[in-house]
Nucleic acid binder design. Structure first.
Lengths: 367, 367
DNA sequence: CTGAAAGCGCTTACAG
DNA sequence: CTGAAAGCGCTTACAG
């Protein structure tokens, strides 16, 4: 049967290529290249079982003689055998792969945390498959299902709205999930983020302490938890200090196109504003361009605080005060939490909901 | 046999959990959840073969009646069946996955191109597994091998030095590979990048045309092709205009720590410098901080051009003139090229070596 | 201590 | 037009 299959394939190649001889050789060598457990057991006169046990470090447990084990390991090393993960995954149901879903890997916040998560996962023997949702629920659903079909062992998700049902199902199927950046209130799931309310409260407090009386919040209309909490923090400080709220809420879908015009109008109509908090990184970058184009002096005319720190804010002149998320700690917590469920082989009943404190990095933009 | 295995697993659960009943139910529902071709064929009274053909769009080709096909498709949709990619991959040797290796996903250049490549791949039915080498050959080798063990169909590599042998082997095994950003001169492989020499030549020419007579190049000692070409471009312009070269070459390994001190010394010792080209993005960001800290006026004292454009350079005051890589075109070419080999099922003899032109975005930093 | 054999969920050459 | 059966490369319960 094997021979027949071989001949058949060769035949295909013969009829479709010009340099048949060359390709044929390649094809054979390609198959030869990939050595299997069967090849090893045959060569060493042992059974597949024995090889497999030794390869999986179960030699002692299965009371396989040290000499046999050593002989197998030496041979494996010599021929450079590596196991086929697809076959292994098919049997064990484990692939040592983590599905990582972000909003957009091109966003510095996500790419930086991706870099850290990748490293942590790698150190623990896991690889990452990633994808971006661009904030679309349909895309997110498709990605989760695709990951499932590919048998990822666990999921790290930056969820869009409307994913409640799917995530609940993942949990019911005992698939480890950790949410980050934002969570879904209706779903009981592990979550790691920052204390957004406190972070924004502190940012605004910093402005108020600098004597600002008319503090604006530039945000989007997204109903994601992290955005709502930031809004809460803003409101809390304003209430505490008896200040008027000036809120510009840009439609999330058109956040890039609309920001510029909307912000210009907003500032024109509210000339009294003397402090601005940007609720997220792309709003800050876009907003700073608007401020500059309108020759608004920072901080003398308007003081500025941004959410999420990055190079652009650091290099801006004046340096922009920013709320920095503890990316490294977050990445570590996310992976650690996922690994616990992964090792356990099932989802724990008690979910872990952790909000880390953010750090306010004070620069010249707030005087 | 199946029943025995089932009981065994249940037993394990009974002995390790408290709410055994609950967990048991979960476990069964988890297995039930995953419906297979066998389940479908049984339910519909057809063979696995027929189901498989229909699922793979071979119904017509295999002359399966339209009614049967429709019935199967309807049932599949109803029960929400999705194929197990591991099993499929084991048989076909295809996983519809592309291995994507970058230097560091946290670097904006790589995360932006990753975002674009991911989208293009996704539109063509491929998923991305990615990893970062951090410029280390050992890590790169390990990643390539890990990807191979996981059966990725193709490779998009930003190669480190010393990967010649491994890449040659991939080609010999008929595994599609596309290099980007830099290539390995000793290896015949597809490559997509930019015309680095021209790009740097034009950047320096722009400075010279602005009357700069003492143009410095800040680069690393990396021997990667893209860096060498940029150096060539610099040299070419200098020769053409009869200008003296001022080159600061920071050790690649310590590029972050050393840049600051080295650059300060360099500028101090070469007070005559009136123009600077940074050879890559992190050098530009670090370098600009040094210039600012030393209160060097841009462009009046020193004019500046950076390689790779990004937000930080755009927002910097003054705006920094930058060489912008055509990321979108590159991503498209990379995927298109890989898809050709992927569809073909083997590596083409003729390799594709394409260098796209970069664009110089002139801002205030060059006067 | 070790091996024969079943099974994971697919695809596909072959036989009607 | 459709099905029985082999095989992809592993793991593992069972039987010595």
């Amino acid at each position: 049967m094997k021979t027949i299959a071989l001949l058949f394939k060769l035949n295909i190649i013969f009829t479709t290529t010009i340099s048949a001889k060359h390709t044929t050789t390649n094809w054979i060598s390609m198959k030869r290249n990939r050595i299997s457990i069967k090849d090893i057991s045959k060569a060493l006169g042992l059974s597949n079982t024995t090889i497999s046990f030794i390869l999986n470090g179960k030699a002692e447990e299965m009371r396989i003689s040290a000499q046999v084990a050593a002989r197998v390991l030496a041979y494996v090393k010599e021929v450079g055998y590596t196991p086929n993960y697809l076959a292994r995954g098919l049997v064990t149901g484990k692939t040592n792969t983590i599905g990582f879903i972000v909003e957009n890997i091109g966003n510095p916040f996500f790419s930086q945390i991706a870099s850290l998560i990748e490293e942590q996962a790698y150190n623990n023997g896991y690889k990452i498959i990633y994808s971006s949702t661009n904030g679309e629920k349909a895309k997110a659903l498709e990605l989760i299902r695709m990951f499932r079909d590919r048998g990822v062992d666990g999921y790290i998700l930056c969820p869009t709205e409307g994913l409640e049902e799917e995530i609940t199902q993942l949990r019911e199927e005992n698939r480890p999930v950790v949410l980050f950046d934002r969570y879904l209130p209706a779903v009981d799931s592990h979550y790691i983020g920052i204390s957004n309310e406190d972070a924004m409260y502190n940012a605004c407090k910093h402005l108020a302490d600098k004597g600002k009386k008319h503090i604006a919040l530039i945000t989007t209309d997204s109903q994601q938890t992290q955005m709502l909490s930031r809004l809460e923090g803003y409101r809390k400080l304003l209430k505490e200090r008896n200040l008027t709220a000036y809120i510009l809420s840009v439609p999330y879908e058109e956040r890039r196109e609309r920001l510029q015009l909307d912000l210009e109008n907003f500032l024109e109509n509210n000339g009294i504003i003397d402090g601005i908090c940007f609720a997220t990184n792309y709003l800050a970058v876009g907003g700073l361009e608007v401020l500059r184009r309108n020759q608004i002096k920072i901080p003398s005319h308007i003081a500025v605080v941004a959410f999420d720190d990055n190079e652009a804010l650091r290099l801006f002149q004046p340096g922009i005060t920013a709320v920095a998320q503890p990316l490294e700690d977050m990445a570590k917590l996310i992976i650690d939490r996922l690994l616990i469920d992964l090792k356990l082989g099932k989802v724990t009943d008690k979910t872990f909901h952790k909000e880390l404190p953010a750090r306010l990095i004070v620069r010249e933009s707030t005087g």
